[in-house]
Design a binder for these strands. Sequence first.
DNA 1: ACGCTTGTCAACCTCTTGGTTGAGTACGAA
DNA 2: TTCGTACTCAACCAAGAGGTTGACAAGCGT
Lengths: 115, 115
Amino acid sequence: MADELSKVFAALADPTRRDIVARLASGDATVTQLAAPYEVSVQAISKHLRVLEDAGLVTKTKEAQRRPVHLEAEVFDLMTKWIERYRQQAEQRYQRLDAVLAELTEENEGKGQAS
Amino acid sequence: MADELSKVFAALADPTRRDIVARLASGDATVTQLAAPYEVSVQAISKHLRVLEDAGLVTKTKEAQRRPVHLEAEVFDLMTKWIERYRQQAEQRYQRLDAVLAELTEENEGKGQAS
DNA sequence: ACGCTTGTCAACCTCTTGGTTGAGTACGAA
DNA sequence: TTCGTACTCAACCAAGAGGTTGACAAGCGT
């Protein structure tokens, strides 16, 4: 796949992966610990983790046979920045429209017309 | 597909769709206007717009033959809330770890050990 | 009434995704 | 050294995503 942002959004588009992120937010966990709550195979969860890792949302470290998974918070900033940029612009436009509508209402105030 | 959040993330996982969102942030546009910059067919863009619409990121209105597309800012809040929840938790844990490490360093200060 | 513009629907193709099972590696415990 | 645990790799499969082309509907302008 292509750019960082696409990978991050794609990774979080899956409910299972969002769930995993949610659990990692309260502490690191190994692959089998993460796989336990789900009905799917451990391999499937391993694949999910690789997607999260490729997106930079998560890192794996070695500890004997275990691979504790750790949530990386920094990548969230990338998303937040992207979102905020366009959310704010859209909201400003919305408020500008509000202002225009308010003006139009004022102008028509004496004319008794409010289509 | 399933839940709202999954649809929103999936919609924004595509660079073309993020690009469309970016352009819509500075004003509404018709389907052909939105399709113009890209090499793909108008139908492809129409599909992209339906994905964005299903995710609630965008609305279409009728205006003669044209279908002006409008960016809906509210849905971004859903994402922002989800992201912020886990980002903050992860950051807090990180800072707590920092504090623990600082304590450990202090304790070892007189012993000349700094592995 | 006719044609042009705008947009969607439908069928099709290819690549990706999320899942499976089976085998293999790496390591600690006995 | 042998066994069990933890995890990954590889091959495979069904379903979905993004693209194409072709046909069609809906409106405006002449």
